[in-house]
Amino acid sequence: MTKVTMTVNGKAVSKEVSGNTLMTEFLRDELHLTGTHVGCDTSQCGACVIHVDGQSVKACTMFAGEAEGASVTTIEGMANADGSLSVIQQAFQDHHGLQCGFCTPGMVMTAAALLKENPKPSEHEVRDYLEGNICRCTGYHNIVKAILAASGQDVSGIAAE
């Protein structure tokens, strides 16, 4: 067991963990932040995407010990300070970018990373950036649309609404 210290959603946390504790296990079991989901075991579904020092990573493919000293943001830390939905979260609701909600935390975290890197992505760039996030419900239509809308682009021309 070693002690790890990091900031999670702005709060300092310090816990004893064993070497093989994954970041997903640390967040879900130790910190009870169950918004980060585990949908696969081969690092492909992206339901567990979080931000570590501002970069998107798959929390299932990183050890808690590797986040020593890092600043971590999870889906629980994405809403505005007053508790209202952030622009991206609101766009997902406005455009029905989620159904069962299981992949949604990872989608929102990945979308946030994308818009930070590329504030006005094209449809192709959004789809390409979502390569590591699998959704089984929405057919991606409304997820892509929501991300384009969150970037401030006009989505009224996109079919079906």
Binding site: V57, K58, Y129, G132
Partner: peptide
């Protein structure tokens, strides 16, 4: 290579 999160690690 991979996806953005994989490329970050």
């Amino acid at each position: 290579i991979g996806d953005p999160a994989v490329r970050n690690r």
